[in-house]
Measured scan of single mutants.
Amino acid sequence: NKFNKELQWATWEILNLPNLNEEQVKAFIDSLKDDPSQSANLLAEAKKLNDAQA
């Protein structure tokens, strides 16, 4: 289903952001699991944090 694909993509993207630490990655992944419908928003937040920590 649509959410599953978005969830998988967002998870992969977050796991490959170079500037997030392990705790941050885990928090984002946990949030994705809690509410897959928010995957696009969570991914945007993760990318923002990644850029801020570059």
Rank of each mutant, 00 (worst) to 15 (best):
L42H: 03
Q8L: 13
K48V: 09
E22K: 12
A44T: 11
A27V: 10
N19F: 12
Q38V: 05
D30A: 15
F3N: 13
S31K: 13
T11K: 06
S31R: 15
N4G: 12
Q53V: 06
K26E: 06
L32T: 02
A10T: 09
K5W: 07
V25E: 02
N16A: 10
L15M: 13
E13R: 11
D35G: 03
E13V: 15
L7Y: 07
L15N: 08
A10D: 02
D35M: 07
V25Y: 05
Q8W: 12
K26T: 09
E22N: 09
D35W: 07
K33N: 15
A27S: 08
N4S: 06
S37W: 07
L20M: 02
A44L: 12
S39I: 15
Q53I: 07
A46G: 02
E23Y: 13
N16W: 04
S31F: 11
F3K: 09
S31D: 07
A52M: 12
D51P: 01
Q8F: 08
K2S: 15
T11V: 09
D30I: 14
A27K: 09
V25N: 02
E6G: 04
P36I: 12
A10V: 12
P18A: 09
A40R: 15
D30H: 14
S37P: 03
A46V: 02
L32W: 02
N1F: 01
N50H: 02
E13P: 01
W9Y: 12
V25R: 14
A44I: 09
E13F: 14
L42E: 01
L32I: 06
Q24G: 01
K26D: 07
E22G: 07
E23T: 08
W12V: 04
N16R: 13
L20F: 01
I14V: 05
L43E: 01
F3M: 11
I14T: 01
S37K: 07
A40P: 06
L20W: 00
V25D: 00
S31I: 07
N16D: 04
S39G: 06
I14M: 04
A27Y: 15
D51T: 09
N19W: 13
E45Y: 14
W9Q: 14
L32D: 00
N21Q: 07
D51Y: 12
A10P: 01
N21L: 11
A27T: 12
L32F: 03
A44P: 02
S39H: 14
I29T: 04
K5M: 03
I14D: 01
K2Q: 15
D30N: 14
P18R: 13
L20N: 00
K48T: 08
S39M: 15
D30M: 15
F28G: 00
D35V: 05
N16Y: 04
I14P: 01
L32H: 01
Q38A: 08
S37E: 08
K47E: 04
K5S: 09
Q8V: 08
N21Y: 11
E45Q: 15
S39Y: 15
A27E: 08
P36T: 04
A27M: 13
K47Y: 15
N1T: 04
A40E: 07
K48R: 11
N1Q: 05
E22F: 12
K26I: 10
A10E: 02
P18L: 09
F3E: 15
E22Y: 11
N1G: 09
N50T: 01
A46D: 00
L7R: 02
D51K: 10
A44M: 13
N1H: 05
L17Y: 04
Q38P: 01
E13W: 15
K47S: 06
P18Y: 10
P36H: 03
N1S: 03
E45P: 00
A54K: 06
Q38G: 07
